[in-house]
């Protein structure tokens, strides 16, 4: 499939492995990405804090350029959660609020641009991969299944919330990445913190808050038995990976939980080599975890055999049905 692509500032540098791994796998999943020419920063959460209308106009320029450059796809995808949310939020609020729409378009007109809200479908990369490419197509491409690798799927905040266009099954416990991991042969662990905050900009402006949040996530993944955490956002990766080292210093702890992008795991399963996927650029070395990948699928079927319950087992188990 074809999609317009907004890489965002982070992917250019601090999340370079995310971009590299995406570029490495795009042919395998038949994803044709058209980068928006001369895009600008989305303003993260900061611009919005200073000038609301200007922030929407800043984002509006990207939307306008994308609309202008769109040829045969109206899907605009971004890999960074903040970039994705900003684009989606501006589009949604321009749709909802006629006054905002008029104001932003008036500002855009000063640069000779215009944007018709709703003309693009803003989607996160994970959404496109899981829901458009689909698990079956991905599974079909797997040559080196990630058997034996236990992964904590970590979604962070801004992809799942506030979810203006209803793209996800749940605000708090989405399952798309878990299903993706299963398609790659890995074993997603069940854990409570899938969409808890990584600390966001607090790692810079209030590190002690961030360290607490990072520790909880890293501890939660460890407690759930994960070998590594899979993420879909440069900010989350940076906080959980780079700041994990700082967090260990702060708490005098020694967590060693590698944090990789889901695209890197897809690359591994598709048989790419680690270097090509930017693996090795993480602060917490992923090599020991990746060494656990087994050639054979682990035997879990036996244990899960259905059996009639007995009252002596205790109360019937909880169910999510």
């Amino acid at each position: 499939m074809k999609a317009l692509f907004y890489p965002g500032c982070s992917m250019q540098k601090n999340a370079r492995p995310y971009l590299d791994s995406l570029l490495a796998i795009r042919a395998d999943i038949d994803l044709e990405l058209q980068e928006i020419d001369d895009w600008n920063c989305c303003g993260a959460t900061e611009y919005m804090s200073v000038h609301r209308v200007a922030a929407h106009s800043l984002i509006g320029r990207n939307l306008a350029l994308a609309q202008q450059q769109a040829s045969d796809s109206d899907v605009l995808t971004a890999g960074c959660s903040a970039c994705y949310l900003n684009l989606a939020k501006t589009d949604a609020q321009m749709r909802e609020d006629a006054h905002l729409n008029a104001t932003v378009n008036e500002a855009l007109a000063a640069g000779g641009l215009a944007y018709q809200p709703g003309s693009l479908k803003v989607r996160h990369l994970l959404d496109v991969v899981c829901h458009d490419i689909g698990y079956a197509a991905i599974k079909a491409r797997v040559v080196k299944p990630l058997h034996g690798l236990k992964v904590a799927a970590y979604y962070g905040c801004q992809v799942a919330r506030p979810d203006y266009d209803g793209r996800w099954d749940c605000h708090e416990h989405p399952t798309a990445m878990d299903q993706l991991l299963r398609a790659l042969g890995a074993e997603p662990v069940e854990w409570s913190l899938k969409t808890q905050c990584c600390g966001g900009h607090m790692s810079v402006i209030g590190p002690e808050v961030a360290f607490g949040l990072i520790r909880r996530l890293i501890h939660g993944a460890t407690q759930a038995g994960a070998d590594l955490v899979a993420t879909l956002c440069p900010m989350c990766q940076l906080n959980l990976d780079a700041y994990q080292v700082e967090m260990n210093k702060h708490f005098h702890s020694d967590y060693q939980m590698p944090v990789l992008y889901f695209t890197q795991l897809m690359g591994l399963a598709f048989g790419k080599n680690a270097g090509e996927l930017g693996i090795g650029k993480e602060f917490v070395d992923a090599a020991p975890a990746l060494a656990k990948i087994q050639a054979e699928a682990p035997k879990v079927a036996e244990a899960k055999r259905k059996r009639r319950p007995k009252p002596s087992d205790g109360l019937p188990p909880p169910r999510m049905e």
């Binding site: 749940c170 605000h171 909880p318 999510m320």
Partner: peptide, 15 residues
């Protein structure tokens, strides 16, 4: 109560 995922009903054994 499964509709309120943050309360863990159906997922956490002792809810």
């Amino acid at each position: 109560a499964r509709r309120i995922p943050q309360y863990g009903y159906g997922r956490l054994a002792n809810v």
